[in-house]
Design a protein around this nucleic acid. Structure first.
Length: 460
RNA sequence: GGCCCCAUCGUCUAGCGGUUAGGACACCGCCCUUUCACGGCGGUGACGGGGGUUCGAGUCCCCCUGGGGUCACCA
């Protein structure tokens, strides 16, 4: 049984790096028919926020990642941690340290001045005298004094850390609350986690956690340390890069399947394949195929994926999604024509909504450059004769509107562009956009006539 | 700074001693077309540098350079 977990600390929104890590864990668990646990790492009571937890859950919900069982909160498990800390204390594998924060800071400063690596000097490791009065001690674990900590990382390979790089790190603060490296190991073991896939900024926590596993006699999971995601200029991702919040992608009009597809290909690949459904990802993903080097994201690839998924999304779902962007098509009788025309050329839902509005709403102004380009020669006569033909017919379908344009073209002996360009300006105010016949079918005969008349009037 | 990790087109990547170094995004050109897109075809473009090992290195080793991570009573 494979058990994975995603264990964010609730200090802000879920960002795309976190989402990718979650996705990797989720895929691996699902692929193996295992369990995927969501655990909130909130042992530092002063930094938690419910809002952050809700933001994470909201993002999970949006992209469709589900987790097994209830969300685990470490803040609710302090009794368990306390028990294990007592156990280590009793067995002499951990000890109370009465050094105050101030003393520690002073020591560190001194060490740094001497050009040494700042570290705790283990002064209370074998202390058996009278503890100083009025000091609430922390609990430190006894790290080995010599030798190496070695573990096999599924991505990085064999990782060796010399014991003298490790401190007797703190496992319980002076207020009694346990610290990260301790609770992570305890929880991963107690929850039966078999595979830990996480950012490689945790690589150095791993030997510390291994010390905890060993001291407690718990099973050590397999580790996969995933390289970071860099911003578009190859630098570390920071809040300044914008669009860090996963939900921001929803607001920008990206489909969750596009985002997931984009993220899964950051650091992982399968042959030359670019498009992966969730099912394909599950079938093909293996964390040991993840790259060793960091990868920078580029939005244009996301755009491409998004437009691909938009093209392949049923119109019903598109029209539902478009409502978030202020376009309501559910009861529009020509919505199929409109959606079919738009989904071919939109990169995002937001863009699609804007294009829809351009068609659905009469233009308030006409593109100047377009006017210069298109309003040449006989354009007025052409539009007038188009109006005449249109008024005497009763077109409903795009093909029928097309016939009318065609009749004018033939009657006048002109090219399609001679009528198409001015007509475009009259209908939508600009030169780009879907097929004219589609546009006219969507807005209907009367609205078409009205817009052309308005156009002629305003440009007389 | 100490310790550690990483290094193929601008970007994401394939490559696991012998390849004209492949694909994708982006970019450019052509075709399609009433326009803008889509689509099709084609093109520009990479093994960071230096030493080895080998008959033969993008692939293995070392050094340099560059990037990153980490050194908390944060997670």
């Amino acid at each position: 049984m494979v058990v994975t977990r995603f264990a964010p600390s609730p200090t802000g929104y879920l960002h795309i790096g976190g989402l990718r890590t979650a996705l990797f864990n989720w895929l691996w668990a699902r692929k193996n028919g295992g369990r995927f646990i969501l655990r909130i790492e909130d042992t530092d009571l002063s930094r938690n926020s419910d809002k952050a937890v809700r933001a994470i859950l909201e993002a999970f919900d949006w992209v469709g990642l589900n987790y097994d069982g209830e969300v685990e909160y470490q803040s609710k498990r302090f009794d368990i941690y306390k028990e294990y800390i007592q156990k280590l204390l009793k067995e002499g594998k951990a000890y109370y340290c009465y050094m105050s924060k101030e003393e520690l800071d002073a020591l560190r400063e001194e060490q740094q001045k001497r050009g040494e690596r700042p570290r705790y000097d283990r002064r209370y490791r074998d202390f058996d005298g009278e503890p100083p009065k009025g000091v609430q001690p922390v609990v430190r674990i006894k790290a080995p004094l010599e030798g190496d900590i070695v573990f096999e990382d599924g991505i990085k390979g064999t990782v060796t850390i010399r014991a003298d790089e490790l401190d007797d790190f703190i496992i319980a603060r002076s207020d009694g609350t346990p610290t990260y490296n301790f609770v992570v190991a305890v929880d991963d073991a107690l929850m039966g986690v078999t595979d830990v896939i996480r950012g490689d900024d945790h690589l150095y926590n791993t030997p510390k956690q291994i010390l905890v596993y060993r001291a407690l006699g718990l099973n050590i999971p397999r580790f996969y340390h995933v390289p970071m995601i860099l911003n578009e200029s190859g630098k570390k991702l920071s809040k300044r890069d914008g669009a860090m919040d996963v939900m921001e992608y929803k607001r920008m009009g990206y489909l969750p399947e596009a985002l997931l597809n984009f993220l899964v290909r950051l650091g992982w690949s399968y042959k030359d394949q670019e498009i992966f459904s969730l099912e394909e990802m599950q079938k093909l993903f293996d964390p040991s195929d993840i790259n060793k080097s960091a990868s920078a994201y580029n939005l244009s690839k996301l755009d491409w994926l998004n437009s691909h998924y938009i093209k392949n999304t049923p119109n019903q779902r598109l029209s539902e999604l478009l409502e978030d962007f202020g376009v309501y098509l559910q009861s529009h009788d020509k919505k199929e024509i409109l959606l079919d025309a738009l989904k071919e050329r939109a990169k995002t839902l937001k863009e699609m909504a804007e294009m829809a509005k351009e068609i659905l709403e009469a233009p308030r102004e006409y593109d100047e450059k377009g006017m210069k380009k298109a309003l040449k020669g006989e354009w007025r006569e052409i539009l007038e004769s188009f109006l005449k033909s249109l008024e005497s017919a009763d077109p409903r379908l795009p093909a029928e509107f097309h016939e009318i344009i065609k009749s004018v073209v033939e009657q006048k002996g002109i090219g399609f562009g001679k009528i198409g360009q001015p007509l475009r300006l009259a209908l939508t105010g600009r030169l780009g956009g879907p097929d004219l016949a589609d546009i006219m079918a969507v807005i209907g005969k009367e609205e078409t006539i009205q817009r052309v008349r308005e156009f002629l009037q305003r440009n007389s």
